[in-house]
């Protein structure tokens, strides 16, 4: 089934994103579906810079810049505010990077999820603190180079399984999405718009300078991550009903992670054994996800 993505742009051209920025693409797609009756809250993240500088702003909806660790709760406050002082149907959106979500913002995020605040939370995940110059976050995958995990000692820990943490809060809706699949993202947004309560979106958003890839390869790399199950697409309803929604299940059978790894400068130092270990981890996680989805 082909989904039509709304045409109206709510992001102005001339913003400050790097070429090929997955995060910029992600917000552009999301706002098209959420529409004009939306208020955005940004914590410190790439978008704090992409949007500006004052007095310019790249977004055509109201936007509140807030402190690093407060995206979820500030957006919950905005929702309570519009409920009492304006239109209660206005959509309140927290839009945060992986550092502001997986690390410093997880307390406020967990609080908002536990209270089942009627809002959207989006993490555009570029797998490190890119805005400050590529430092590791708990969303950085094992083996990756960052400026705080040098090639002599790349990241030793696995990427935090944040979606499972949010699922443990039994929120009504969780989705993973990827900038390479805007139809899938749009379809999920349409569905989530009808749901009252906490909606969590984990969007995979490559970062050319941070991943050391060519800007023109953003979509190609993002597609690979879905095809090889580094970043599978799925939904979780009420914290327990898992639905896998891979775009091309036949084509995606047994796609190895090699090409994805080798195409990125941040993984250049990895040896064959390291890549095999990543493959084993991805395979194990995929089997677990299939079990959860009862396939």
């Amino acid at each position: 089934m082909i989904y039509t993505i709304p045409q109206k742009e709510l992001i102005n051209p001339g913003h400050l994103a790097c070429q090929g920025c997955g995060g910029a693409l992600a917000l552009r797609t999301v706002l098209k579906t959420l529409g004009e009756n939306t208020i955005l809250t940004f914590p410190a993240c790439c978008w704090s810079v992409i949007d500006g500088p004052f007095p310019y702003s790249a977004v055509k909806v109201p936007l509140f810049h807030t402190a690093f660790e407060t995206a979820a709760v500030t957006a919950a406050g905005v929702k309570a505010g519009v409920k009492k002082a304006q239109d209660p149907n206005t959509i309140s959106v927290a839009w945060a990077g992986d550092g502001g979500t997986f690390d410093i913002g997880i307390q406020a995020l967990s609080g908002a999820a536990e209270r089942n605040e009627d809002m959207f939370y989006f993490v555009y995940d570029n797998e490190a603190y890119m805005n400050t110059g590529v430092q590791r976050s708990s969303a950085t995958p094992k083996g990756a180079w960052t400026t705080t995990t040098p090639t002599q000692s790349p990241k030793k820990e696995r990427k935090k399984d944040l979606v499972s943490i949010i699922a443990a809060h039994a929120v009504p809706y969780i989705a993973t999405a990827c900038v390479a699949y805007p139809e899938d993202l749009t379809k999920k947004l349409e569905k989530a718009k009808k749901i009252k309560g906490f909606k969590f979106f984990h969007i995979f958003a490559p970062c050319p300078p941070g991943w050391k890839i060519n800007p023109q390869d953003t979509i190609r790399i993002a597609k690979m991550a879905v095809e090889n199950k580094m970043f599978p697409l799925f939904e979780i309803e009420d914290g327990e009903k898992y639905t896998i929604n891979m775009p091309n299940p036949k084509k995606e059978k047994n796609v190895p992670v090699n090409e994805y790894i080798l195409k990125q400068g941040r993984f250049r130092h990895l040896k064959e054994d390291d890549i095999n270990e990543i493959q084993a981890f991805v395979d194990k996680r995929w089997e677990k996800l299939k079990k959860l989805a009862e396939i």
């Binding site: 004052f54 310019y56 977004v59 109201p62």
Partner: peptide, 14 residues
């Protein structure tokens, strides 16, 4: 205020 009828950005990079 944050108002969808009159959108403004608050607290951006200055």
């Amino acid at each position: 205020k944050l108002d969808v009828k009159n959108p403004h950005t608050f607290g951006g990079l200055t």
